[in-house]
Each structure stands twice: as C-alpha cells, then as structure tokens.
Simulated scan of single mutants.
Amino acid sequence: MRALITGSTGFVGQHLASYLMNYGIEVWGTTRDNFNGIIPGMKIVPVDFENVGSLVKVLDDVQPDFIYHLAGQSSVKDSWTDKSTTFQSNVNLTIHLLEAVINSTIKGKVKVLTVGSSEEYGGPDEQYKPISEDACLKPTSPYGISKATVGMLARHYFVAYGLKIIHARPFNHIGPGQRVGFVVSDFSNQIVQIERRQQNNVISVGNLSAQRDFTDVRDIVHAYYLLLNQDENADWGGSVNVCSGKATSIQSILDTLLSLSHSFIDVVVDSDKLRPVDVPVFIGDNTKLKSLTDWEPTISLTQTLSDVLKKLRDQS
C-alpha cells in the first residue's frame, strides 16, 4: 500500500508519516522546496500546487492508495491578518488537488482524507453540550470559514464525481514537536526556557478557566488511518469529528506541566493573551468516529505533556 501526504513536513504530517510506515505503508510526502526529509524512509516529491497538470503527473507517477491532505495555513490568529493567503492555502489548493485526482489514473481507487477543524463550528449552540457533526456551522474566523469550505468541497467531489473522500474535523491536538503558537507548546516552551535559565521564573498565560477538547496527535493520526481503511460502507463525502469527547481546563494543563517541571515557577496573567470573547467550554462528540472505526484514544494527557517537555528539553 502507498500513501501520499501533503503537508508531510508539518507537525501532524511527520507523526502521520511515522505511523503509516510503522504499518508497512510506503509514504510519499509533497514539498514545494528542495527538502531532503526529516522522517527516515519517507520519500519526498516536489509538487507545484498551482499547476493541476503537475499534480496529475505526480499522482499518476506515485499511484497512491491513500491521500492525506494536511497542507494548508493552520493559524487562526494569522488568518485575521492575511485572509487571502489563508483561503489560497486552504481552499484553492484543495480544489487544485481534488481536480488533479479526478483527472488522474487513480480516481477510481484512491481514498482521500481532507482535514478541517473544530473552528468550522464557531461555537456550541448549548454551552456545555458536546458538538456533533450535524451541528450548524457558524465559523467566526477566516480560518474556520476556509476549513468549512474545504468540508463542503469534499462533499461536492463525492456527489459530483464519486470520489471516495472523508472530511475530518479535529479538535485541539497536542503532542511533541508542535510549534510555538498553541497553548501547550507555548506553556511548555516557557517552562523549558526557565529551566535553562534563559527566562525569568515567571510564565505568562491567558485565560485559564476555558475548557477544551485535547487529543494527542498520535491518537489523531491513528484515527486518520482508520477513517481511510474502512470498507465500502464508509461515510464517503461525510465529515467526522476527531476528538476525545472530554473537556479539560487550561488551568489543569498548566498545573500538570508545572508539576513536571524542574523549577519553581510563578504564573502571571497577560491581558494581551486574553480574548474579547472566549467560549467557556468547547468539546466534541466522537460518537460517529467510534461507530465507524472503533477508535479510542490511548495516550493519557499526562503522558502527552511529559513527552512535549522531553522533546523540547532534548533540543539543543
């Protein structure tokens, strides 16, 4: 079996590549640059996402059984300041890829996973109710709007062209190797800087009372694998939440990280990190994912946070 991963050098892409290769799947990753790869065993193929013909040639040459489309702009914050790039990266490039698929020799056999976000929902209709896939989409950021559009495109290419495609909506995913700019990586990076005496013993935080749905990235990629390894009764053209189904407060994330630290650390709230509007509780309903795949998360939150810190500490 052979898989093609777009965005293969990113946080999730690297974990997915390693996971698939452990299952004996040959993995190809796309790149726009002359990138030699940081995942041993993954084959890198340069691709021009602006050129559908170039994409068709890559698909015809590689002949993947699975395509995991992870490439795109992943920052909600950046989407506010650069809306055009966000839509170009998340919507237009998805169109180019799917157009290439339906014009390639693999159209009839390949299975495709597009990756959206819980940001597509915008916020829960009821404050403490887990959000299911049939909830109304009310994205409130340009990023969320772009990902909701990707989900609609997935449905369109299934209905119009019979493409075997599933749209995943992951909630907060965390784990070793995540770049700074997300709550766990930000907290962890500050802690390691303090341990190295490169920062005063004070960690700057935002709203700690908010509760979110966190899942280890290694459990996330396991779900992605299972979603494309279903039988013909799979929900092709549908959307599936990928989440733990549990609410965890940012305070408890911080408390656990501090308990794993080698230093005494004070906590200071930074008003610049507080959002004008912050949904108190935001969790997903993973009933559909479990019914389709029998997926269950296997990595505890404490283990995830410990691994995040270890990865940062091991970096020179």
Score class of each variant (00 low, 15 high):
6 T>S: 13
12 V>P: 01
16 L>T: 01
29 G>S: 12
29 G>A: 11
31 T>C: 11
33 D>P: 00
37 G>S: 10
42 M>Q: 15
48 D>Q: 09
52 V>D: 07
53 G>C: 10
58 V>E: 01
64 P>C: 05
68 Y>H: 06
84 S>L: 14
96 H>E: 08
104 S>Q: 08
104 S>K: 07
106 I>Q: 02
110 V>C: 09
113 L>R: 00
114 T>W: 02
117 S>F: 01
120 E>P: 08
121 Y>Q: 04
129 K>I: 11
133 E>K: 02
134 D>Y: 04
137 L>A: 07
141 S>D: 04
141 S>Y: 11
143 Y>P: 02
145 I>Y: 00
148 A>H: 01
161 Y>H: 15
162 G>F: 04
166 I>A: 04
166 I>S: 02
167 H>V: 05
169 R>N: 09
180 V>A: 14
183 V>T: 11
184 V>P: 00
186 D>R: 06
189 N>G: 02
194 I>T: 03
199 Q>W: 10
199 Q>E: 14
210 A>T: 15
210 A>Y: 03
210 A>M: 08
210 A>F: 03
214 F>D: 01
223 A>C: 06
226 L>C: 11
227 L>G: 04
227 L>T: 12
229 N>T: 14
232 E>P: 01
235 D>S: 12
247 A>Y: 04
248 T>D: 06
249 S>Q: 04
251 Q>E: 13
252 S>H: 11
255 D>N: 15
256 T>K: 13
257 L>F: 10
259 S>F: 04
260 L>I: 03
260 L>K: 13
262 H>E: 09
264 F>C: 10
266 D>E: 13
269 V>C: 07
273 K>W: 03
274 L>P: 00
281 V>C: 09
282 F>S: 06
282 F>Y: 15
288 K>H: 12
288 K>F: 03
288 K>R: 14
290 K>Y: 05
293 T>W: 03
294 D>G: 10
294 D>S: 14
298 T>G: 02
303 Q>V: 14
304 T>V: 11
305 L>C: 11
307 D>M: 04
307 D>P: 01
316 S>F: 09
316 S>T: 11
